[in-house]
Design a binder for these strands. Structure first.
Lengths: 252, 252
DNA sequence: GTAGAACTTGACGTAGCGTCAAGGTCAAGC
DNA sequence: GCTTGACCTTGACGCTACGTCAAGTTCTAC
């Protein structure tokens, strides 16, 4: 007593294409092949198919299912391994959801409000995209809360400090000193200390990877004209990057 | 001022292969192509690339990213649409995790305990695989708790009721009446009422899809010899299925 | 005998690149 | 001017689990 490929597909709730696929993989050969080439399946094949479909619904890949059916791997072991992967996926998804949510929030609510704060030279909100691109919407949100939480005079002081740093960098770059000179390295030290004052960045977060952050920043200064403008243009930014690189490799 | 494909790949933290891929897709054409065919990228391209990589990290597909960059779709709108899909994925994963967990539990703990209950003709625990395959480990666990929670006399009564149903079905099948006859339909009604007594099944769960469940059961009776044996073999099972199908379509 | 349903194998498409393969180009050193 | 090695190019296959034609053969029913 056996069934045609369509019949068994309906019985098991799948398609004939799937059955041919499983045959191609050697996962479920037909119990009999007619002289006309037709595939026929018996009850044993149906039971096997149902196990396959069960495991597949649980998310196992076909090779893993093949191992289980071949007795190579215990069903429970295979499922536990799979469970680990599922949990990783859950974590990844949860992080991604949070990230997307924060990004939407920043896009919808934050942008106009922040735009009002954009004054002259330095305004960190100008760089939302860059910050999020490199260190996540988290970092931006933290930095933004910090910025908006300041009093006006505090903000002004911070801006002046930032602008002074930029001016000093530009001057040093123009003076022709080397990026590894004592003067440039002193500026680099000041720069890193300045960064440490910004919450949400690795430099402003205990345990953050300051070294990688600083190295990344250098590249960003060079790559983006809006940053570069703060340091005397592309040449200035290149100088800053080189000096930061030397500093980071020596001290971080 | 521009960069070679390797240089910009390093700056943005990706690979040259990816950049060629984006070029092929028209997502990020190089800003300049040398006479030798080499691709060169400027700062505008770098900024565009960084937006692409940001959106990609958030999980958007490349076509969706292309829409956003082309101004076809607002960034926030695209991300909100994406968020919906992410949440669906989360739900799906959560269900799958729960399902896998229950299956492992049943595999590890339950099996031997249940085996002791297997007596003569009908024992639902005999059908763990089938039950789980079709209605999930949930259903089996609920059914198993119910079964094990009964007193011995209750279990015996249930078995007798089940056996009587099986005998009556077999007799009806052998008598030659039609599946849509009043006699067969009365049996079908009894059968569905009997099913309603089993918690964990759709029939035993308020709001469950009884109709689909009953139709699926019919096929299973025919497909599986262990079930079929309860109803007078394959012919009996076929009769049961046909009668149940008629009943379900008319009354459920 | 013939139409229509069911079956066969073969092959492309899917998402986003990784990874050879085969060959041209460039900068540096001899 | 030649070699070496690094970097560049355009194909094209591979991966997951099939869906979806396409073209041809076989079965079933009238």
């Amino acid at each position: 007593m056996d069934w045609s490929i369509q019949e068994i597909a309906k019985l098991a709730g799948t398609t004939s294409r799937t059955l041919r696929h499983y045959d191609d993989l050697g996962l479920l050969p037909p119990s009999r092949i007619g002289g006309n080439g037709y595939r026929y399946y018996d009850r044993a094949a149906l039971v096997r198919l149902q196990r396959i479909l069960l495991l597949r619904e649980l998310g196992l890949g076909l090779p893993a299912i093949a191992d289980v059916l071949a007795g190579q791997t215990g069903e429970a072991r295979a499922l536990e391994g799979h469970l680990g992967w599922l949990r990783h996926e859950q974590d990844r998804l949860a992080r991604q959801v949070a990230s997307v949510e924060r990004t939407i929030e920043a896009l919808e609510g934050g942008e106009e409000i922040m735009a009002k704060d954009m004054l002259d030279g330095f305004d960190h909100t100008q760089y939302r995209e860059e910050v999020e691109e490199r260190w996540g919407a988290d970092a931006f949100a933290a930095g933004d809360r910090w910025w908006r939480g300041m009093r006006d005079d505090e903000r002004a002081a911070w801006k002046e400090r930032s602008a002074a740093l930029g001016r000093d960098w530009a001057a040093a770059a123009e003076s022709g000193v080397a990026p590894d000179s004592a003067e440039a390295q002193a500026l680099a030290k000041r720069h890193v200390e300045w960064l440490t004052g910004i919450p949400g960045t690795p430099a402003g977060t205990p345990g953050g990877d300051v070294r990688a952050y600083v190295l990344g920043l250098g590249d960003m200064y060079v790559a983006d004209p809006r940053f570069a403008a703060n340091y005397g243009g592309e040449q200035g930014a290149t100088f800053v990057r080189d000096a930061l690189t030397v500093f980071a490799e020596a001290n971080l």
